[in-house]
Design a protein around this nucleic acid. Sequence first.
RNA 1: GGUGGCAUAGCUCAGCUGGAUAGAGCACCUGCCUUCUAAGCAGGCGGUCCUAGGUUCGAAUCCUAGUGCCAUCACCA
Length: 594
Amino acid sequence: MNIQETINKAIRAGLQEIYNVDIENVEFQATRKDFEGDITVVVFPFLKVIKGNPVEIGTKLGMYLTDNVTEITKFNVVKGFLNLVLSDAYFIENFEKSYQIDNFGIKEPESGEKSVMVEYSSPNTNKPLHLGHIRNNLLGYSVAEIIKASGKKVYKTQIINDRGIHICKSMLAWQKWGNGETPDSTSLKGDKLVGNYYVKFDQEYKKEILDLVSKGYAEDDAKKQAPLLLEAQEMLQKWEASDKDVVDLWKEMNQWVYDGFEQTYKALGVDFDKNYYESDTYLLGKDIVAEGLQKGIFYKKDDGSVWIDLTDDGLDEKIVLRSDGTAVYMTQDIGTAIQRIKDYPDVGGLVYTVGNEQDYHFKVLFLILKKLGFDWAKNLYHLSYGMVDLPSGKMKSREGTVVDADDLLLDMTNTAKEISEDLGKLEGYTDGEKASLFKTIGLGALKYHILKVDPKKRILFDPKESIDFQGNTGPFIQYTYARIQSILRKADFDFAVVSNGNETVLEDKEKSVLKQLALFPEVVQQAAENYSPAVIANYTYDLVKEYNSFYQSIPILAAEDEQEKIFRVQLSKKTSEVIKSAFDMLGIEVPERM
RNA sequence: GGUGGCAUAGCUCAGCUGGAUAGAGCACCUGCCUUCUAAGCAGGCGGUCCUAGGUUCGAAUCCUAGUGCCAUCACCA
C-alpha cells in the first residue's frame, strides 16, 4: 500500500469517527512550495456532507491523522487545505527501496499482455528527409520507447511509399536530364540526388504549363495536359504493367534513396523492426472491401465505385475502391492494418505517427476497421502531431523551402563543438571521443527542443535563431548527468550499501529531489497513456532543476558525516539513473563528461 | 460553408482527472567560480490565461457563443 492509500484509508476512518460520515474519494495534491508540507488534502469537497467551516474540519482531521498515521508528523491548515508533513524516515525508507531496483520506474511486459506496433517515418522515396520528418521520427521512436518502458512489447515499423506518380516524376527527370548521374559519380547522397530530379521535374513542368497557357489553354487544362505529366503517367502505367526497363530504373533509384535514408536514420538514432513497402501492399485490402460489400458495410455506386456511408457517425461518404477497381489509399491502409496483425499475431493495437493534416483519414480508417468487426480496432491510435512551420510558412520540398535533415544535424553538432571548445573542459579526450560527444550534445539539443513540446501543437522553427543550449534544454540535463558521473568517479568508497536512514535528518533540498524521484514510475505510465514524450521531458527537467539546486547548496563528497555522504552519493546516482532512463525514452544519449 | 485542432509573460513552452498568490526557460538587470564541472546556482523585472456569458464553495482547466490562426472536407496522399 502506498502512502496515499494509507492516508486515504485513515481519512475515511477519521471522518467516520469524528463526523460519522463515509467519504469515498479524497482529493490529494502535492503541497505547493510556499506552504509547509508534502501532501495536501483538499477539504472543500467534504463540505457537501459535513456542515461546518473547512478550517475547523481540516484541523480536527489533521489531529486525527497525526495521531493515527505514523508517517505523518505535523500538519497545518490554510483555508480549505490540510497540509500534511511526512517523516524523514518515510522518505528515506522509500528511497532505499527504490535504490535497490535496477530499472526503477520501468516495467517489464507481463506474459499474455498484447504487444503494440508503432508506425513512424513512412517517407516517400522521391526526396530527402526534412525537419518535418525529424519531428515525426523523434516522436514515433520516443513514443515506442515510452510504451515499451510502460510495460508492453513494441514493434517499430514504417511503410515506405516507394511507388506512385511522384516517384515516376523523379525517374523521368533523371532519364531526361540526368546524363547517367549516380550517387557515386556525383558524391551526392542518393536521396539528395533523386530529390534534385524531383525538383527539376517540377520546374520543367511549370515551364510547360506557362507555355501552354500562353498558347491559349485554360490553366487547369494546361496542368493536366503538359507533356511531362502525361509522360510520367505513362511511366506509372508501365510500372504497374511490370515493364522491365521502368522497373529496373525504379529499383536502382529507390536503392539510392534507401542508402541515403539509412545514413540519416543512423545519424538520428532511430530504427525499425520491420519495413513495409507500398509496392507490396498497395493491392491489399481489395478482398476485404469485397467482403465488406457482401456484409453490407460498403455499397456500390452505379459506376462501380465502392463507398462507405459514415454520415450517421458525423462524417461523410468515403470512397474505398475506384470505379475501375483499383485501390485508393484507404483500401491499402485497411489491407495493411490487417496484414500487420497477421504478421504479428501478438499485436493488439497500432499507433500511427502521422501529421494532423491526416486526422480525417485516420478517423475514417479506424471507423471502417471497427465496422468490419476486428477486435483490435478499438486499440488504434493516430499519434497526430502539428506541422513544423518556418517563419515564411509551410515547408515545401518542390520549392526548396525546407530545412534539410542532414544539414540540420550537422549544424547542431557544429554548434555543440563551438560551445564545447569555448568552455574547454575536454582535456584528455581524443578527437574521436570529442566528435562523438559533440554529436551527443548537438542532437540532444535538437531532440529535446522538439520533444518537449506537446505533440499536437505546431512548432515554428526559425533557422536564423539557433536552438538553445542553456535552461530548459537537452544539454542542460546532459550536463547535470555528466556532473553526477564525475562525483561517482570520485566517490572511492562503498556507497552500494543501504545507509542507516534513521540517523539522517533530511535537508529540504534533499527531500525535494527524493519527492521528484518518487514520481518517476507514475510519470512513465502517464506519458505512455498520453503518447507524450513531452511528459517525460518536462518531468526530467523538473528533476534536474531540483537536483542542481541541491548540488549547489549542499556538500556531497565533502559531507562531514559518513552516512550523509553515502546517502547523498546514492541520491545523486539514482538521479543520474533516472535521467538516463528518461533520456533513453527520448532517444537522447547522456555523456560521461562535457 | 461543415468538421477538427490550437490560443497562457516580449519570445519558446509547462500547468495531471476543476482547487491555494498562474509556473519555467530565453531575453533584460543584480549577486555567486582558492570547495564535488558556472552548459550551473540565488534573486529581480515581466501576465485582461483570446473575448463574452454559464456551471461550481472554487474555472487557465468544464459547457455555450464569438474572434483569430492552422488543417481537412477529391475516384490525391
